[in-house]
Write a protein that binds this DNA or RNA. Structure first.
Length: 864
RNA sequence: GGCCCCCUGGCGGAAUUGGUAGACGCGGGGGUCUCAAAAACCCUUGCCUUAGGGCGUGCCGGUUCGAGUCCGGCGGGGGCCACCA
């Protein structure tokens, strides 16, 4: 009995595809196109199992669409700038470029061993000067068009990496790579004007129908549109020029309950008061020192400092509110000043309790007309009633009056305030401009020159790229470009005076914001070629991890719009990714020895219930299945799997067990299962007899097999279209089971033909998942056209449909019988048949049924 | 704190979107072949029950002829954002 030899077959077919340029894409307006893209990898040195899952899914789609007649673009590249290369340079004294390109070479080899249908002719790395030259050209066009600007800003400074981090790169107050607590520093930075586009980026989310709802929500929340009221308090006792205090609120309906105002320590009023109010300077200094990490925020008390300044209550004549500087007010959201309504906001309530401020309700609690007007028992905070008969005390927010708040009350309050000339309804966004300056070497240089006479001067386009110098020194922290003896020194292109290059490089998110477009014309002397972009874009299917749901995708959407505005993309390409799929992680059990050492899967022997360490024979504690990580040692190496079982087994397993959007657990048993199935398919195909003899009358068993075959075609096709690969795999198993049974009845008339049809169909349906094995078998069966060039099989509708169906019969909602009826039988005849069925007669007990519900093709329910 | 999602056998998961719950796989049990083992193949496998049947999709309630699916409440798990006014 022969076996599938992956070690021989896989390289053979990979060479065949390469030699025949099977996956080289060429724009052809006469053919419908399909652009499949997986998020390109960072060249860390080795592919990991998550890559295998990601690229396998993409490859299934690419090969499927190809077989369906599409002109498929399926490219691969490298997100190659970034700090790991610099870290490697510092640790191992190797040039970041050398390290990166070596890694790319290694990973390219690994990807090729997976047998992916990639157009390697379009490959590029973002650190290629040919790529970043075009990125610099884009930057200059963006600068000219006003999408880029420079300003001083307080930035997140990573003291270990000595670089600026975007807000998004600060996680829990720590640098996302170094993990060091982030400090605040004022620096002049380059920004992309993404905030101006907030409304459009938000509105367009509605059109992204083929994106996961989860991602659309995350983007919408990130953009953070809010509608509120902006108005000014009149101040009492404030310094000159601060007669009014602007505040913004999303809850103008609670304004009557205001009992204090609070401002940021960086607010102009607070700054003006510094030095004039005793204790304020010290308090402000303390606020500025406050960290921004989650724990710090959690623990940080809500503290305020009474400035002595007061503001007039805008709704209650004669009433005034104290103005506090408070440590929880952000200067860069809204106006940096708020009013506090303790009755309707937990934080304001905490603050009010602490400083003995009034807690005033603005709503009469529904159904609680006798609610006490004095503090409820159990509340110890002082109660200071305002002189207004409409004001009542209630507990904050929750409960009976919740239904009276909400959008309607807010909208009415804004209308009222506008008509009263008190303030105006405004829309604010959470989204801030995108700071792209990085004080790093291994990134795309920002192509401008600082001239003492002319100021900021763009590098003329014919002088692009501004290349990174090769002779660099990583001995000291900070930016090597800044320290380079000659690189930054350059004459001004306008006045020829000695000038200095910009030494900041771009955030690597810039690199990945337009690579999808570059793939449509990867060797062009301009960033894109309109004709190619118009043909290939948008990306029809984008696949990657949900960790990029916000930043990368939002930046790409911004870039696409900016590129349209600067003439680099056609109108209509504003949304770069028509369909998005976010795949789950690959997890693995963790193993720990009695003395607490983490063990790799290779170091243990796993039985059904337990595990032992191979070296010692000791029992091993089995931990939960979690994301693979080096520290927990629960890592499997894709290369080792491919070497042992072949790429097809790894690919097939990645698709079989779990729905693609969910996490999948990597288990040795699962891999074995996939391997066994592939061997079974091998056997089914190789044991198939010679070409079928002349046809006799078709035996029912043969017809049943043909029906199973065609149902499988319809099902697998729908499953691949719907990204339910696990279901497609289940159907392939079912067909293989049917073929196995059929082999036992090989003598039945028409069975030889039915088996051949079934097996060939199985191979064709499996081809996108296990391309090598199926090509090999296809050839073995005598075909000269390789599967890669075969069209997708078509289901025969008549065969895929059942003519007679088994209809379940319920009595009072419980299944009691089944009846066999024609698929298109009418309700009356079904009902008549059901009422004669012995099991139903028994339950009727001689009486007529109260009701009979017949759902043709589904079910019958008899109510007695 | 805000927004969102999920909960189905021992396990991963199906269920035509309100119509036979548990497809398919893993694991388990039994068998065939073999001197033996591996491989392979066959049968079996939600729980309870002596038959007939009863019970079952986190828990409680509701809507419906019919609920894993819809509604309300509770419990548990997870994700994203977060001093955002």
């Amino acid at each position: 009995m022969s076996r599938y030899n992956a070690a021989e077959a896989e390289p053979k077919w990979q060479a065949f595809w390469t030699e025949n340029r099977c996956f080289a894409a060429e724009a052809d307006p006469a053919r419908p196109k399909y652009y499949v893209l997986e998020m390109f990898p960072y060249p860390s040195g080795r592919i990991h199992i998550g890559h295998v899952r990601n690229y396998t899914m993409g490859d299934v789609i690419a090969r499927f669409k190809r077989a369906r007649g599409f002109n498929v673009l399926h490219p691969m590249g490298w997100d190659a700038f970034g700090m790991p290369a610099e870290n490697a340079a510092m640790e191992r004294k190797v040039h970041p470029g050398t390290w990166t390109y070596d890694n790319i070479a290694a990973m390219r080899g690994q990807l090729k061993r997976m047998g992916l249908s990639l157009d390697w002719g379009r490959e590029f790395a973002t650190c290629d000067p040919e790529y970043y030259a075009q990125q610099q050209a884009l930057f200059l066009d963006f600068l000219e068009a006003g999408f880029v600007y420079r300003r001083e800003s307080v930035v997140n400074w990573d003291p270990v990496d000595m670089t600026v981090l975007a807000n998004e790169q600060v996680i829990d107050g720590k640098g996302w790579r170094s993990g060091a607590p982030v400090e605040r520093r004022a620096l002049t930075q380059w920004f992309f004007r993404i905030a101006d586009m907030a409304d459009e980026l938000l509105a367009a989310i509605d059109g992204l129908e083929n994106w996961p709802e989860k991602v659309r929500l995350m983007q919408a929340n990130w953009i953070g549109k809010s509608r509120g009221l902006q108005f000014a308090f009149d101040t009492l006792g404030a310094p000159e020029g601060h007669e009014r205090l602007e505040v913004y609120t999303t809850r103008p309906d609670t304004l009557r309950g205001a009992s204090f105002a609070a401002i940021s320590c960086d607010h102009p009023l607070s700054l003006a008061l510094e030095g004039t109010v005793e204790g304020l300077d010290a308090f402000s200094a303390e606020c500025r020192r406050l960290g921004t990490s989650e724990e710090q925020l959690e623990k940080a008390e809500k503290r305020g400092f009474d400035t002595g300044v007061r503001v007039k209550h805008p709704l209650i004549e004669g009433e005034t509110l104290p103005v506090y500087v408070a440590n929880f007010i952000l200067m860069d959201y809204g106006t940096g000043a708020i009013f506090g309504c303790p009755a309707h906001d937990q934080r304001d309530l905490d603050f009010a309790r602490k400083y003995g401020l009034a807690v005033l309700d603005t709503y009469h609690p529904k159904g609680l007309e006798d609610f006490p007007e004095s503090p409820e028992a159990g509340h110890a905070e002082p109660y200071v009633p305002l002189k207004s008969e409409t004001v009542r005390y209630v507990r904050p927010v929750q409960g009976a009056h919740r239904d009276m708040t909400g959008d309607r009350a807010i909208a009415e309050a804004i209308d009222w305030a506008e008509q009263a000339g008190m303030g105006e309804g405004v829309t604010k966004f959470r989204l801030r401009d995108w700071g792209v300056s990085r004080q790093r070497y291994w990134g795309c240089p920002i192509p401008v020159i600082h001239c003492p006479n002319c100021g900021i001067v763009p590098v003329p386009k014919d002088q692009l790229p501004v290349r990174l110098p090769d002779d660099i020194d990583f001995e000291k922290p900070g930016n090597p470009l800044d320290r380079h003896p000659t690189w930054a020194h350059v004459d001004c292109p306008v006045c020829a005076a000695p000038a200095r290059r910009e030494t900041d490089t771009m955030d690597t998110f810039v690199d990945s914001s337009w690579y999808f477009a570059r793939f449509t014309a990867p060797r062009a002397e301009t960033p894109t070629v309109m004709e190619d972009a118009a043909y290939w874009l948008c990306v029809d299917q984008y696949i990657g991890g949900v960790e990029h749901a916000i930043l990368h995708l939002l930046y790409s959407r911004f870039f696409a719009r900016a590129m349209i505005a600067t003439g680099h993309l056609p109108e209509g390409a504003a949304e770069p990714f028509d369909a998005l799929f976010t795949q789950g992680m690959v997890t693995h059990e963790t193993y720990r020895s009695a003395d607490g050492r983490w063990l790799t899967p290779d170091e243990i022997r796993r039985d059904a219930e337990s595990a032992t360490e191979i070296a010692s024979g000791d029992a091993v504690e089995i931990g939960p299945s979690i994301k693979m990580s080096k520290s927990k040692k629960n890592v499997v190496d894709p290369d080792a799997i491919i070497q042992q079982y072949g790429a097809d087994t790894a690919r097939f397993f990645m698709l079989s067990d779990s729905p693609p959007e969910r996490d999948v657990e990597w288990t040795a048993a699962g891999v074995e299962g996939a391997w066994r199935f592939l061997q079974r398919v091998w056997r089914l195909a190789t044991e198939l007899g010679a070409a079928p003899a002349a046809e006799g009358p078709t035996d029912p068993a043969a017809l049943a097999l043909r029906k199973a075959t065609h149902k499988t075609i319809a099902g697998v096709t729908a499953d691949i279209e719907g990204f339910t690969f696990n279901k497609a795999v289940a159907r392939l198993y079912e067909l293989a089971n049917a073929l196995g049974s059929a082999a036992q009845q090989a003598e039945a008339s028409g069975m030889a033909q039915a088996r051949r049809e079934g097996i060939e169909t199985l191979l064709r349906l499996m081809n996108p998942m296990a391309p090598h094995l199926t090509e090999e078998l296809w050839q073995t069966l005598g075909h000269t056209t390789p599967l890669v060039d075969m069209p997708w099989p078509q289901a025969d509708a008549a065969l895929a449909r059942d003519d007679v169906i088994l209809l379940p019969v319920q009595v009072n909602g419980k299944k009691r019988a089944e009846v066999e009826v024609a698929r298109d039988a009418d309700k009356d005849s079904i009902q008549a048949l059901v009422l004669e069925t012995p099991d139903v007669v028994r339950y009727l007990d001689g009486k007529p049924p109260k009701k009979v519900i017949v759902v043709p093709g589904r079910i019958v329910n008899v109510v007695v």
